[in-house]
């Protein structure tokens, strides 16, 4: 239970701060004495947080589904021809800077939520795909052979043996992907998506450091909350599936 305490606490702080930012007005006024408006008000922080989260969750869900499906297909006998290409693309794709991918989505899809979602899915897919392939390819062939030899069907081998064994690595891929996507979604404000990046961008444009701070603190908190959530998830996974890890 102590594992879940840090993410829970961070989440409470994050939500509390988003709801009660106006309370801190005196503090921000001290930081930014020369501006009339020191609390960002073109959208409530809770709404921005919710929208930011929604973008990340949708892209993570779609990305995970697509990447795991793709990874499985490319490692089956029928799709094995595509494996070298898929793994090459997964690793080359990750050298593309996320900002550049985001920027390239705009000419194709225009401004707003659509291009950012597209870019987040596409870019977030790559680390998951890469880890899925690494996880499935990394399984000792003897294990797979033993499962087949004892009469499991290919589907059973996949569901009961391969996916549980590769799951930990896939989870790590999802963590990487979500971390990157929280950051990229924040930059998405520049192409018209409503996220926690909005106050930062607005503050930078107007020279209002208070706005920048509010956005930056909330983005940072969101990232930390998510990261500690994944930390707890990974620890739980380790305890359940690898007894040595639990003893250590």
């Amino acid at each position: 239970m102590r594992l879940w305490l840090p993410p829970a606490l961070l989440a409470v702080v994050l939500c509390g701060l988003s709801a009660a930012m106006p309370v801190l007005e005196p503090l921000f006024r001290w930081i930014q004495p020369d501006k009339q408006q020191v609390i960002y008000d073109r959208g409530s922080f809770l709404f921005l947080l919710q929208n930011h989260l929604l973008l990340v969750v949708i892209s993570a869900a779609v990305g995970t589904f697509a990447a795991v499906a793709g990874g499985i297909l490319a490692t089956r006998p029928a799709g094995r021809d595509f494996l070298p290409l898929v793994s090459q693309v997964a690793s080359i794709g990750q050298t593309f800077p996320p900002v550049a991918v985001l920027a390239l989505a705009v000419p194709v899809l225009g401004f707003g939520e659509a291009p950012i979602l597209f870019a987040l899915i596409l870019y977030g897919l790559l680390p998951i795909l890469r880890n899925t392939l690494a996880g499935l390819e990394g399984i000792n062939p003897a294990v797979r052979e033993a499962a087949t030899g004892m009469g499991m069907s290919p589907l059973q081998v996949l569901v009961r043996v391969e996916l549980p064994l590769a799951g930990r690595i896939i989870l790590a891929g999802i963590r990487t992907s979500v971390t990157i996507n929280i950051a990229t979604a924040a930059i998405g404000s520049t192409i018209g998506a409503r996220t926690l990046g909005d106050p930062v961008i607005a503050g930078l444009v107007n020279g209002n450091t208070a706005y920048v701070l509010q956005g930056a603190i909330l983005i940072g908190l969101l990232a930390l909350t998510t990261d500690s959530l994944f930390e707890a998830l990974e620890r739980t996974w380790d305890r359940r599936f690898s007894p040595q890890g639990a003893m250590a």
Partner: peptide
Amino acid sequence: QTIPSLAVFGLLIA
């Protein structure tokens, strides 16, 4: 590394 880039840039300004 966990803190998003935009936040780090923002936090350094003040």
